[in-house]
């Protein structure tokens, strides 16, 4: 009747099984708790990650400090005469169109030109737009980190007179309140398409 106990397990098996179970649980916990930006496998983790920069008012802004509110982030430079003001203006307009739901959406501009864009210049530049925009800058090393995290393309193009232009990614990245990649607004995309994405982002 108690045939299952006919062959008692060896004494050493019990601790080995316990160890196996502990390792398995430990592995599961590590997988669940491991920072998502380290995983880099899934598409949803492909953009974004840890960074530390400073805003136009001198406050430190990090990926962690932005949590709690979804944000739309765009990379450019203040001497960019066309696409940067055009894109920031479009983001401002879409945020306004969201109405009260848009208030929780933060707009973020990251300067790709730390040599020439001072905090003051960035602040003055952003004050031209009808809604508040968080302007970020940092040391070249700090910027390199966020550029890598968002896979942003940036290339200085020298022009006559010792000046330079910057070719750069024109995509607006949408990040959710947990700082995870949610989607993107492509340059030239129809307003209705962008608006629908932003509505889903803010849960309106």
């Amino acid at each position: 009747m108690t045939s299952t106990e006919r062959r008692p397990a060896p004494r050493w098996l019990r601790p080995v099984l316990w160890l196996a179970i502990l390792l398995l649980l430990g592995g599961l916990a590590a997988a669940a708790l491991w920072p998502r930006d380290e995983a880099a496998g899934g598409y949803s983790d492909a953009f974004g990650g840890a960074f530390e920069l400073v805003d136009q008012n001198g406050r430190t802004v990090t990926d962690r400090s932005l949590k709690g509110q979804p944000f739309a982030i765009f990379f450019g430079f203040t001497r960019c005469p066309d696409i940067c003001p055009t894109t920031l203006q479009r983001m401002s307009r879409l945020k306004r169109q969201l109405g009260p739901a848009g208030e929780k959406l933060r707009l973020v501009f990251v300067s790709l030109d730390p040599e020439r864009d001072s905090r003051k210049l960035i602040g003055d530049y952003l004050s031209l737009f009808p809604v508040p925009i968080t302007g970020l800058t940092g040391t070249p090393q700090q910027l390199a980190r966020i550029i890598e995290a968002y896979h942003v393309y940036r290339e200085k193009v020298p022009i006559e007179g010792g000046d330079y232009l910057i070719d750069h990614t024109a995509t607006v990245f949408l990040m959710d309140a947990d700082g995870r990649f949610f989607g993107a607004l492509a340059h030239g995309e129809a307003d209705d398409t962008s608006f629908a994405k932003l509505r889903r982002l803010v849960g309106a």
């Binding site: 005469p81 066309d82 696409i83 006559e160």
Partner: peptide
């Protein structure tokens, strides 16, 4: 301004390229 030039703005995939 010190200079006035004609520039083009073109998209190369999702990258903006500006050129005189």
């Amino acid at each position: 301004a010190a200079s006035v030039d004609v520039h083009s703005m073109a998209m190369d995939g999702n990258i903006m390229r500006m050129r005189p």
